[in-house]
């Protein structure tokens, strides 16, 4: 009897710990509000943009969406706009754009942040550059949506642009 009871408890513990300890699979949190949540804002966002499951927008590292073949395709796209971006750079630092890729690979709900190279929040700096990055990211076209176990998911993705000496030196995720 005790063996059965303890086996059952052990099973519950294993299932529970696997649910949240495995961070690189969809977590099905069934909640909109989480760290990094981007609420719909009708003044910024496309009202025709639909997600498949508003309560379960996963993170990129859980479902691995991909643009082209990945970072080489993303770098190639932005390299064509490098001069323009550099001309808009008022201060060096990291410009981060975060957005949603829906289960069909369409994107929207872009938000940007800017921080200095020593990681302090300077979000009011480089306003024009932030607008341009959103415009260019919007114009990238569709991504291959995030997938796990054959199912497509909505997910959050972000890209980071590093500016040093007013030069765009790297793009990463």
């Amino acid at each position: 009897m005790y063996t059965l009871r303890y086996s059952f408890l052990l099973l519950i513990l294993i299932v529970r710990s696997k649910t949240f300890s495995q961070n690189t699979v969809p977590q099905h949190l069934n909640v909109k509000e989480k760290i990094g949540w981007i609420p719909f804002d009708k003044s910024l966002d496309n009202s025709n943009f639909k997600v498949c499951d508003e309560l379960n927008i996963e993170e990129y590292y859980q479902v691995n969406p991909i643009y082209g073949e990945g970072m080489p395709s993303i770098r190639k796209y932005f390299s064509a706009h490098k001069q323009l971006l550099q001309s808009l750079c008022e201060k060096d630092g990291y410009l981060i754009v975060r957005f949603v890729i829906n289960c069909q690979g369409q994107t929207d709900r872009y938000r940007t942040k800017f921080m200095s190279l020593n990681y302090s929040d300077e979000n009011t700096v480089n306003a024009e550059l932030q607008k341009k990055i959103i415009q260019l990211t919007r114009n990238m076209g569709n991504w291959n949506p995030g997938k796990f176990d054959g199912k497509t998911y909505d997910c959050y993705q972000h890209l980071k642009f590093i500016f040093k000496n007013s030069q765009l030196v790297d793009v990463l995720f």
């Binding site: 961070n23 760290i35 990094g36 993170e59 590292y61 990291y94 981060i96 975060r98 942040k113 921080m115 990681y119 302090s120 929040d121 959050y156 972000h158 980071k160």
Partner: peptide, 17 residues
């Protein structure tokens, strides 16, 4: 950790520092 994973690095690094 979740701040750095979601690109909220200014917050993430303030805590990590």
């Amino acid at each position: 950790v979740p701040y750095n994973k979601t690109g909220e690095h200014a917050i993430g690094f303030a805590m990590l520092n």
